[in-house]
Amino acid sequence: MNIYVLLKKTFDTEEKIAVSGGKIEDDGAEFIINPYDEYAVEEAINQRDAHGGEVTVVTIGDEDSEKQLRTALAMGADKAVLINTEDDLEDGDQFTTAKILEAYFEDKEADLILAGNVAIDEASGQVGPRLAEYLGIPYVTTITDLKIDGENATIEKDVEGDVEIIETSLPLLVTCQQGLNEPRYPSLPGIMKAKKKPLEELEIDDLDLEEEDVEPKTKTIEIFLPPEKEAGKVLEGEVSDQVKELVSLLKNEKKVL
């Protein structure tokens, strides 16, 4: 089985976010594999171990994305592909990513493509479904279980806390939800092996794409942090007075009534 994982690097969850000049500062920030993509890597390895085949991890990013790819290789993936857009693209959106991936998958025979449910940074959850549309294959999002039998797949999908059971067929794209599995730690022997595994680097040029082909369809107008939580206010006095004051505050100050 040819299994592919779409992987994105994101800020470490411990990282503090600072915005300056309309951009998120990433100088010196620690990056990790997007936690939902880790479920995808783990699932891919498990499916390969059960059914044979090969796991290829694909990311779009810059030179530093190699670290996350090596981590996926250390977990047990077989090959990695870095589509380096650092020099070619100023910015991109979900359209850009899906378009580049479409071009990458054009000549591949993928049986199963796994992605995270969302990336914890921009949280659009669009790239997987869009790519499946472009490739003309079925997709199921937020999966919590995946059983493959020959060409058929039985999937448990998380629907706002309920479970939907879906039967579909390969080739297939799924996006992975928490609960699907427990991602393993890259073992030390795995880390040692990872440096010898193939890591291919491509640029959009290699995919016969021009900058115009992948120009974002959206514009980011502004980036800002959520307002800091202000200290609460404790009302005092008789209860009836407190109620009056509360209503007046909601009406006049917060203007929600």
Binding site: K67, R70, T71, Y185, P186, K195
Partner: peptide, 17 residues
């Protein structure tokens, strides 16, 4: 090296997890 850092990270994740 990156490898050193990965080894450190696996250890840290193991200890915390």
């Amino acid at each position: 090296t990156d490898e050193h850092k990965m080894i450190a990270k696996t250890t840290e994740d193991f200890v915390i997890g």
